[in-house]
Write a protein that binds this DNA or RNA. Structure first.
Lengths: 254, 254
DNA sequence: CTTCGCTAATTGTATAGACAATTGTTTCCT
DNA sequence: AGGAAACAATTGTCTATACAATTAGCGAAG
């Protein structure tokens, strides 16, 4: 216990204290959370094991486990058997704006997420899609269509244009395995974003992919991001409106 | 067991089946989830008690409990002691777009949410703020400023303009208790929304409220919603950029 | 030196049981 | 009848324990 190979920097338990509000597992959760947000425990550090915390707080392991798992499920901690629990690199981030990560939405609902790449091409010089972006003729643009499924039922169709100059590494990604959305958010810097939410009827292309009738109303989120003046990506996300009710008093345009 | 006063309509367990993937508590979770999304169990119905499910699936109560609680925490079920567990009215909704509900964000992080109303007034006829909305001179607009705190530290400043014609009941709300955001989302119909995300320096008004220096950079989300042609609300949400890192490679404009 | 297999540390899941808290229902006393 | 007290049903939390799964590290065998 005293001499350790120290696979990762390990934290101590100084300052780890319960308040006295509510159930003990929430107190423990808050105590750990406080260590992270205060900066005493920084991303990458290994936190005490369940056993140590169990002793520290004088509770049973299930109680510690509940506190830690609830933090882990929300992405503040990462846990690995035999390795232990480390503070996630994004633990101090707040989802002040949640970029719609379909995968997360689906998996939070306990369903199976799957993904299909439908189309991938470099937009030709005279293609009308180029007009959506205000970029020079030489700039190469990548066009993607992919489908996100929940329990093998189409949940979201993604139609995306990417400015390759702003994100050159994207050409090296195998996009038939990895959805482009999360990768872009995490790897390509951007400074400005604009979203438009509306209800639109599905055209043939969308209806086919989503397994709907042509004209069925969909909820469409359109997002554009820039880095300074440079457009980064433009994406249209189609949700079948009939299959999933939507949060809030959203009324399709008649 | 056979004759019941039936305080609420109660569901049977027909069709409630486990698949065989992953841990049993997730299987049970999916089984219940499937009953809801298939429509066999509809909002307001009382689902079988933990004991009954425990017997049905042949597991221990803690296992059932874990499945149900995880659904309840996400808003698919509502639980009350002695009453039982009912399907939440919003259970079939998908958070296809999560309207930023600060309260939810804060409470999910295990912190204490609190709220202050800073300012509330009907915008005078000649006020420049009227220009933000394209409405007739007679239309009365409500101006609100409120602060959302996490563990008593300012987390988000909300500056909002509401079209009273589109949401007349808002004048009857006691907005010093209830934040206007969630109420509007749930009670006022809208068909279109537009968001802009950017990084801006705090002016005196924002710096004061958020306890920052003037000029400190903030992440600002601006949201406008319409119902058809009619503007409903316009809100600017200020987050102190220094205190909370933000998800993704967001770079403040220099 | 490399590889294979063992051991130990750590988390993941499940069980059985206990008691607390909440609140509808019933019963009983006046 | 009305109100108070007891009861019952249901969820909330916690404990103690057990075994499974994962994997780093170590040591033995080749």
């Amino acid at each position: 216990m005293s001499r350790k190979a120290n696979p990762r920097e390990s934290v101590g338990m100084n300052g780890l204290r319960c308040d006295d509000e509510g159930p003990i597992w929430l107190q423990i959760r808050r105590a750990i959370s406080a260590m992270i947000t205060s900066g005493a425990w920084t991303p990458g550090m290994r936190i005490p094991s369940e056993i140590e915390l169990t002793r520290h707080f004088g509770v049973s392991r299930m109680t510690t486990n509940r506190a830690i798992q609830s933090l882990a499920r929300e992405g503040h901690l990462e846990r690995h058997r035999r390795i232990g629990t480390i503070v996630a690199s994004r633990a101090q981030e707040r989802p002040a704006f949640e970029i719609w990560d379909v995968r997360e939405i689906i998996e939070r609902s306990g369903e199976r997420y799957s993904y299909q790449l439908l189309e991938q091409l470099i937009v030709p010089e005279d293609d009308p899609r180029r007009d959506l972006f205000n970029v020079r003729r030489e700039t190469s643009l990548l066009w993607l269509r992919c489908l996100h499924l929940s329990d093998d039922i189409p949940f979201q169709l993604e139609e995306r244009l990417v400015n390759v100059d702003a994100a050159p590494e994207i050409l090296r990604m195998s996009l038939d395995q990895t959805p482009p959305g999360p990768w872009l958010v995490n790897n390509v810097p951007w400074s400005q974003a604009e979203h438009t939410i509306s209800a639109l009827p599905a055209a043939t292309r969308e209806a086919d992919a989503l397994d709907l009738n042509v004209g069925a109303s969909c909820l469409v989120v359109e997002r554009r991001t820039w880095n300074g003046e440079i457009p980064v990506t433009l994406v249209k996300l189609w949700h079948p409106g009939s299959r999933y009710r939507l949060k809030g008093q959203f009324e399709p345009v008649r």
